[in-house]
Amino acid sequence: MLKFQQCTVLQKRTLFSIPELILDRGQFVALIGANGTGKSTFLSSFSGGKSIQGDLTFDEHDWWKIQPKERAKMVALVDNRFQGLEHLSTQEYLELGRFPYTNLIGRLTEKDKSLIAEIAEEMQLKTLLNQATSTLSDGERQRASIARALIQETPIILLDEPTSFLDYPTKRSIMNLVKKIVEEHGKLVIMATHDLELSVQFCSHWMVIQPDIKQLEMIEGNVTVEQLILKAFPGVS
């Protein structure tokens, strides 16, 4: 579905290269690399910008020729930067997931509303809908954020360190949730993470940014934490 050929990720300087890479629906991919190697740059470049150069196609379409509005129907982002707002309810937050589909004034159709209700039910957010997003716990906000991405109905979901502010049980429940989404909704999920142990348990693929040769390597099947450390952080013993 998503195909990289001779790509370079750069921001002022070259961060890393992707010689060849094919990603598909139903894959749960961990993106692993040290701080500053370009994980966030890689994820944000999907919304436009010019930080990936080279051949990137989505189902044979040139990714960069897709209009921003259409792109928003293909890729959604779950970021951990949003801290919530006192005047934004969880319901309104979820409704923003329909943004790429609504008309000029953002009117929701009956179909939109029932989809939002359905996903809120599935993600166990029903009781939180009228609550302000600023009063949600970190785990709840992360769940709402994932729900919003599901409501956006995109084949690709990007997660930027979704577990970084969470306690251990909440981390595990979020990872279980994402895994279930990958399997049941058939999404391609790319998750930047520093939680190597969790990624080994839950992910199906690992993309490792190797700092010594500045190249992205794809690993599938089975992997151990030690192998990931060796590739991503070669200086660590």
């Binding site: 919304s47 921003p68 509005k69 970021d79 930067r81 943004f99």
Partner: peptide
């Protein structure tokens, strides 16, 4: 209101 990063992913110029 979600921040420019997220807004860009929703298709806002």
């Amino acid at each position: 209101v979600l921040g420019e990063h997220q807004a860009a992913f929703l298709g806002v110029n």
